[in-house]
């Protein structure tokens, strides 16, 4: 098992549960606040729903039927590098609080585990890319061989020619409660234009460049039996706090902890600029 995953599991195990709210103070959530924020999200954006996950991975500090949140079939038409529009204000906050601090962290060797992980990540992706390409070609050849020459096509007068219909990548996005960092954490599973699962390498194309290289890893999902791309939550609390402070200063509404996931999804959209998930209600 990956060194990093072990580290994370240990962190998860030994970090005591947050009992008292420290949302305004530190941008973190208690499990109860996570559930309240999830309920609020589901009520405002019904494309999100609660999931119970697999039985042997249940976390006792969350209700059985509210282990994590999911939204499915989220369209993603363009790749992140083709994205022109940028929310500059958001970008600034996220950048300042996240990218730069992440660099600093690495420089200062605060968290060697992450540095090692991130470096190794780059290495292994470069190595596996060629293998993946070869495998893809092999897969296609294999399918070609399986074509059935005797397949009888029945004429359908009411068939639609679908060659010109726009097809798009879609994502299943889940949000879990990260006990170690006391924040929400986002996980991505993608399908290509033909609903075939995307490889991790392809998923990186839908994450803004700065983050794809630094803050995204492939890890075991805490409630399901497979591994997914996930955005590292080490700066989530700081960014949340910063955004809440900003909104409290400038906005007319009071930000409550149960709005945390809307805020979270808002800043995640600068990391996933082309994945159009639903966080439709306005906070302003």
């Amino acid at each position: 098992m990956a060194f990093y995953t072990i580290y994370n599991n240990l962190k998860d195990k030994f970090t005591p549960l947050l009992k008292e709210s420290r949302f305004y103070e530190a941008g973190v959530l208690t499990p109860e606040e996570f559930v309240q924020a999830g309920d609020f999200l589901v009520s405002k954006c019904p494309t999100w729903s609660w999931c119970s996950g697999v039985k042997d991975k249940k976390r006792s500090y969350l209700p059985d039927d509210k282990q994590y949140l999911i939204t499915k079939n989220v369209p993603c038409i363009k790749r992140a590098k083709d994205m022109e529009y940028v929310d500059e204000e958001m970008e600034r906050i996220v950048e300042d609080e996240w990218i730069e601090t992440y660099y600093q962290m690495q420089k200062e060797n605060i968290d060697q585990v992450e540095e090692i992980d991130s470096d190794m990540k780059k290495l292994s992706i470069n190595q596996t890319k060629k293998d993946e390409e070869i495998e893809e070609i092999e897969d296609l050849d294999e399918l070609e061989e399986m074509a059935d020459d005797n397949f009888e096509i029945v004429d359908d007068p009411n068939a639609l020619n679908e060659d010109n219909i726009l097809k798009t990548r879609t994502y299943n996005i889940s949000i879990t409660y990260d006990k170690g960092y006391q924040t929400p954490r986002i996980w991505l599973f993608g399908f290509d234009e033909n609903n075939i699962p995307l490889t991790p390498e392809q998923i990186f194309e839908d994450i803004s460049e700065d983050h794809a290289k630094k803050t995204v890893t492939i890890e075991a999902h805490p409630h399901e039996n497979f591994s997914l791309a996930t955005i590292h939550p080490c700066r989530h609390a700081n960014v949340t706090k910063k955004l809440v402070d900003n909104m409290q200063e400038t906005g007319h509404i009071e930000i409550r902890p149960d709005m945390a996931l809307l805020i979270f999804l808002k800043f995640m959209s600068s990391v996933l600029p082309t994945i159009n998930y639903d966080f439709t209600i306005s906070l302003e």
Binding site: E135, L143, I153, P197, I218, S227
Partner: peptide, 13 residues
């Protein structure tokens, strides 16, 4: 075309 599809879940499973 009419033919089977392939989901390769090696990378995640």
């Amino acid at each position: 075309q009419f033919g089977p599809r392939l989901a390769n879940l090696g990378p995640t499973m």
